[in-house]
Amino acid sequence: MGRVKEPILWALFSGGGMVAALVLPALVFLLWIAAPLGWVTLPSYGELVELVRHPISRLSIFALASLSFYHWAHRFRYTLYDGLQLYHLNELIAVLTYGSATLLTLAAGFLLVAVV
């Protein structure tokens, strides 16, 4: 990775880490633990569709998802370098991690613009 790109990638990693830290625990607890167990009642199907279609929701979900993917890409890249001592696979790992994050971001954009 070039020296120009590194600060951008770090900013994406850092922004993603912060958004994930602030948003994900409540989201995971409410959507995937409390609601399935019946501890809380979520909005109905129709209300949720309406909520998700709101421009602010689309933008927020897109930002949360793409930043989280780039957060994963950047951190996991260094986990592989430092943890598994794979410095010699630098290029390949960078292409796979940032490439996956980019593909997932494109998929998220398509979903939130064209499908929902």
Binding site: G17, L104, A108, L111
Partner: peptide
């Protein structure tokens, strides 16, 4: 796991 949560939300 951060990436998984984002993917599951999508």
């Amino acid at each position: 796991f951060v990436a998984y949560a984002a993917a599951l939300l999508l």
